[in-house]
Structures are given as structure tokens and as C-alpha cells.
């Protein structure tokens, strides 16, 4: 099955943690992607720019409206995602929990709808 691991964390944490620690997390994240590729779990992964670069759009009665910022004002915002291939939820949870950013934020593990 495929699962989307939505990686969320509070962006303010980057400003408060020592730069060396943040660099280590970034490096480990890249290594983890390669590890998943090697093990055949990797489908696709991206990191996103900060939530203040987001624009939320809606279509109502054929008319578009746009607002600055992400959909919900939450402390932890989506920061990136990894789409994985896993045998079952146990394996997907293990892969999600080992994403380096899960140590400072959280990872939502969601099965992909198969048609």
C-alpha cells in the first residue's frame, strides 16, 4: 500500500534551536530519503517553503477568492511530505516515526486511496 507521510512542525523552532542542530536535521532528512530509496519504500518526497509563502484559494459560485497564509492557523504546519510504499500500517508507522523531523514535530501517516 502507499501512504503519505505529512511532516508537520512549528517553524519557530528553527529560530530557537542551535544552527548546528538544524543543519544536522536537514542532513539526516536527506540521508533518510536515500535510505528509503535503497529499501524500496520511497515514492516521492518534497520539502515545502515556509507557511507564510502559502496562499489559500477557494472557488465559490464560479468566483475565486484568495487569502494569505495556510488553510488553518495551527502551531504545527505542513513542512513537507514523503510518499512511501509499505506492506501495512505497522511498517508505514515505523517509517513515519523514523523521519528525523518527527523528533521535533509530528508525522501524519495516511493511506492513499486506491481505485
Amino acid at each position: 500500500m502507499r501512504y503519505l507521510c505529512l511532516v508537520c512542525f512549528d517553524g519557530k523552532q528553527i529560530n530557537t534551536m542551535p544552527p548546528a542542530e538544524w543543519e544536522r536535521l536537514v542532513r539526516e532528512s536527506a540521508e533518510y530519503d536515500r535510505e528509503l530509496q535503497r529499501l524500496g519504500h520511497y515514492v516521492h518526497a518534497e520539502a515545502l517553503q515556509s507557511p507564510d509563502t502559502a496562499t489559500t484559494v477557494r472557488m465559490r459560485n464560479g468566483k475565486m477568492s484568495a487569502t494569505d497564509g495556510p488553510f488553518a492557523e495551527l502551531k504545527e504546519q505542513v513542512a513537507g511530505f514523503i510518499l512511501i510504499e509499505a506492506a501495512d500500517l505497522n511498517e508505514a508507522m515505523r517509517i513515519g516515526a523514523n523521519i528525523p523531523l518527527a523528533r521535533i514535530g509530528s508525522v501524519e501517516v495516511r493511506p492513499v486511496m486506491e481505485f
Binding site: 500500500m1 501495512d88 500500517l89 505497522n90 493511506p111
Partner: peptide, 13 residues
């Protein structure tokens, strides 16, 4: 839907 398996967990878990 989420693929919770019918298995005894891995020793680590």
C-alpha cells in the same frame, strides 16, 4: 482502509 495488519508485531515493536 489504513492497512492495519493481522500480525504479531515485529520484536522491536
Amino acid at each position: 482502509d489504513a492497512g492495519i495488519p493481522y500480525t504479531v508485531p515485529e520484536p522491536a515493536d
